[in-house]
């Protein structure tokens, strides 16, 4: 039952990805990428990662679509028809895929309880969380306490990316009186003035 559901999800995911390759209208591409994220969230639930599924649904289906639509509104809404199709990218992709699949042949079976990844530190977190921290959600305990230092780094990355976007787009880095770059009409200060 679980395997059948997983395979069904995979077929839908691959179909969505292939549709994104061929569709020229960027609006449809963005919508399909939102669909892709929601399907990915379902797959994460099947694989027991409820926190990850939650994040993927909120981020991929919500914010990411909004930002991409914002970009389309500021740029173009269709992709240009390529002048000629080249086989070189396809060859590169097939070669890389073949190498990756060769690499998976040594991986442990999916869901195997004695895989190397299950032996070392994961079980320790599970065993120690009830006595050390006493919160039911082990993911939160690892995220905020055992690996708090990592998470601080991630928050700083988000902070830095936010700063980058603000500097690139909000015009805070632009000195007063500098002319606008080509393609920007002067009336944008109506919203930016404050």
């Amino acid at each position: 039952m679980e395997i059948a559901f997983t395979i069904l999800l995979f077929i839908a995911l691959v179909a969505t990805a292939i549709a994104i390759v061929f569709i020229k209208r960027l609006f449809a591409v963005v919508m399909l990428s939102g669909v892709f994220s929601l399907l990915a969230a379902l797959l994460f639930i099947v694989m027991d990662a409820v926190d990850v599924a939650f994040t993927e649904a909120a981020v991929g289906g919500g914010i990411s679509s909004v930002l991409m639509l914002g970009t389309i509104a500021l740029t173009a809404r269709t992709q240009k028809q390529p002048e000629r199709y080249s086989l070189v990218p396809l060859a590169i992709v097939l070669l890389t895929g073949a190498v990756l699949i060769y690499g998976t042949l040594d991986m442990p079976n999916f869901g195997s309880p004695d895989a190397p990844a299950q032996r070392h530190i994961g079980p320790e977190y599970i065993a120690r969380t009830p006595t050390d921290i006493d919160v039911p959600n082990i993911v939160t305990a690892v995220l905020a306490s055992y690996r708090g230092y990592d998470t601080l780094g991630e928050v700083v990355v988000v902070f830095t990316a936010g700063l980058g976007v603000i500097l690139l787009l909000s015009g805070l880095g632009r000195r007063r009186g500098t002319p606008y770059p080509r393609g920007v009409s002067a009336n944008r200060d109506q919203d930016n003035a404050q």
Partner: peptide, 20 residues
């Protein structure tokens, strides 16, 4: 195993920030 979940949860949010 909760460890991959933690890594990927933060990676998703960092991913959207870099996408932006």
């Amino acid at each position: 195993n909760p460890l991959p979940h933690v890594l990927i949860l933060t990676a998703i949010v960092v991913g959207i920030a870099t996408t932006a």
